[in-house]
Simulated assay, not measured.
Amino acid sequence: MPERADIADWITEHLPRGWFEDVEVRCDKDEILVVGRLKPVADEPDGACIARFRETTRERRMQIASAAERRFGRKVSWGAVCGPTEHLFTTLSVPAMTRLRLDERRVLDTLIDAGVARSRSDALAWCVRLVAANEEEWLSELRVAFEAVERVRAAGPAGNPPAEG
């Protein structure tokens, strides 16, 4: 499986010059999300700048996405940031199966009963967003550590599984 850095490099190489001031590539096993920072335009609201970018680049973005999907076996989604406004275009919503015990299900059901969520799926997504918002520093450290492990693994011997004892 390609590393995030390899995917980000490939995406960055295929983006037309001038589209973004800066670009961030986020990915997991299912999706590659390309989020670019747009240069604000005087007297144009940030949302309008994003909408204009989305419309004028649609065909080329689809071409880049198709090539990346063939190469990396993942769907490609796009987004843009202008000023403080971020808008993600058509991102994936992937089901995640989990087994929960009674006390864990009660947490989700409480969120439903309180009107915070419509379903257990929504309640679980709400919980994940809450953890992400409150534990970002810890999650960032964990991601950095994992990337280091991936680099060490990639530098090791290829195709030689450990001998069984």
Rank of each mutant, 00 (worst) to 15 (best):
V144K: 03
A133Y: 00
V23H: 13
D103P: 10
D28G: 13
G156C: 07
R70A: 09
L130E: 08
E69T: 14
T85G: 00
A148Y: 07
F146P: 00
L88F: 02
A123V: 01
V34F: 05
A123F: 03
E147K: 09
D46Q: 15
M62S: 14
E104D: 09
R26K: 13
A133H: 00
G83A: 05
D122R: 01
A163D: 13
W138L: 03
H14Y: 08
F72M: 08
V107P: 05
D22R: 15
V25F: 07
S77A: 11
V149D: 11
E69H: 06
G73M: 05
D122G: 07
G115D: 07
W138I: 01
V25W: 02
L111Y: 12
A65D: 06
R71H: 06
A158W: 05
A117W: 02
A65V: 06
R71W: 00
E69W: 06
D113Q: 13
L15R: 14
N160E: 12
R37E: 15
R52A: 15
G156Q: 14
E31P: 13
S119H: 04
R106C: 08
V116N: 11
F146R: 13
L33V: 12
E21H: 05
L111W: 10
E31A: 15
H14D: 14
L142Y: 05
G47E: 15
T12Q: 06
P16Y: 04
L142H: 07
K75T: 03
A67D: 11
E135M: 02
E135D: 05
E136V: 01
H14K: 12
I7P: 13
R37F: 09
R74H: 06
N160A: 09
A51E: 15
A148C: 02
A5W: 09
I11M: 12
C127R: 08
L130Y: 02
